[in-house]
């Protein structure tokens, strides 16, 4: 019996550490501390520069009176644009993802998947350019038709914007940006569902659609939700595509096709930054903090949903 004191035995393992190892581990640890510092920096600097924006002179907020009534319509616009985008994008994304994973002949599926991946990398400013110069002018017939036939729905109360630069156009552009992201992630999730379960369902005589409902969707649910949330995060924070497509005013309205639309936070920052006085800059930075808070809440909710449904599946 040479060693009698039991637990703190790992000490022996740590006694000799080579200098090379110590330096290398130190660098690695420093790198992750850097990330911590950077994120803390984001909060601190935005707070330092933005807090004065909460109580700037009243005329800065015009036509609103204080910060919260200034940022309110912006938050509304941000969420409205993102929701329109998601409502349009999610069904199509899931459809295309299923197309790639289960429906398309293999010879088509691989190139389609690759093209979708490439599209996820197209810069947003290009989507904005296309939305502003091509889509906006071509969308008039659609908005005219919606106004003529469906104007009892508040979304289409019109009158339609002459330039086509409406919330609907912005939503469509955002949707097209979101589709590749959600598709790419959902496709991966669909492809990873255990083949065994699918074969079991087919052996029961299930049709292809029933197989997907039985053996693919239950497995893919949390993955698809997280894909959608990621798309939502992108739609909430997207700046340029909206700034280039939307003609904005400080209003709150559900009307998607008229020429007075609520602005989004990110767009508002981008379009007002150049001419901003220091007071106004502080206000804009404060709205940036609000945007950060909103996206953070969305991401957090996403993670919570995923964690919960994962627990359910594993049970």
């Amino acid at each position: 019996m040479s060693v009698t004191a039991p637990p703190p035995a790992p000490r022996a393992a740590r006694a000799v550490v080579r200098p090379g190892d110590r330096i290398f581990a130190g660098i690695a640890r420093a790198a992750s501390l850097t990330i911590m510092l950077a994120l803390a920096g984001v909060f601190v600097f935005l707070a330092i520069e933005g807090l004065p924006g909460l109580s700037a002179p009243e005329n800065i907020y015009a036509p609103a009176e204080d910060f919260w009534s200034y940022v309110g319509p912006l938050v509304f616009g941000t969420i409205l644009a993102a929701v329109v985008a998601l409502v349009l994008a999610v069904p199509f994304s899931i459809g295309v993802a299923l197309f790639i994973s289960h429906y398309a002949p293999p010879r088509i599926a691989a190139p389609v998947a690759y093209v979708i991946d490439l599209l996820a990398a197209v810069p947003s400013v290009v989507f904005g350019l296309w939305g502003g110069l091509a889509l906006a002018s071509s969308i008039r017939p659609v908005t005219d038709w919606l106004y003529a036939n469906l104007d009892f729905i508040p979304f289409f109360a019109g009158p339609p914007s002459v330039t086509g630069r409406s919330m609907l156009t912005a939503g469509i552009v955002l949707a097209i940006m979101v589709v590749p992201i959600v598709t790419a992630l959902s496709r991966e999730v669909f492809a990873q569902t255990p083949r065994l379960h699918e074969e079991a369902a087919m052996a029961l005589g299930a049709t292809r659609w029933e197989t997907i409902r039985l053996a693919v969707f239950p497995y893919a649910r949390s993955g698809v939700i997280s894909a959608v949330m990621l798309g939502l995060g992108r739609a909430l924070g997207e700046t340029m595509a909206v700034a280039m497509v939307l003609s904005a005013a400080p209003v709150v309205t559900l009307n998607l096709i008229s020429d007075t639309n609520p602005a989004t936070i990110a767009q508002n920052i981008a379009s007002n930054y150049k001419e901003a006085t220091p007071d106004k800059q502080a206000v804009l930075i404060a709205t940036g903090l609000v945007l950060f808070a909103v996206t953070f809440a969305v991401n957090f909710a996403a993670r919570w949903v995923i964690a919960r449904s994962e627990r359910k599946v594993s049970r």
Binding site: M36, V42, L46, I48, G233, G237, T239, L291, F292
Partner: peptide, 25 residues
């Protein structure tokens, strides 16, 4: 664990906020 969480948070930073941060700095 903290780093993993922060990297998650970072993934969600809207690009305009990143710009504002650099500007504020």
């Amino acid at each position: 664990r903290v780093t993993t969480f922060l990297v998650d948070v970072m993934t969600g930073i809207p690009s305009i906020v990143a710009g504002l941060f650099a500007l504020a700095l």
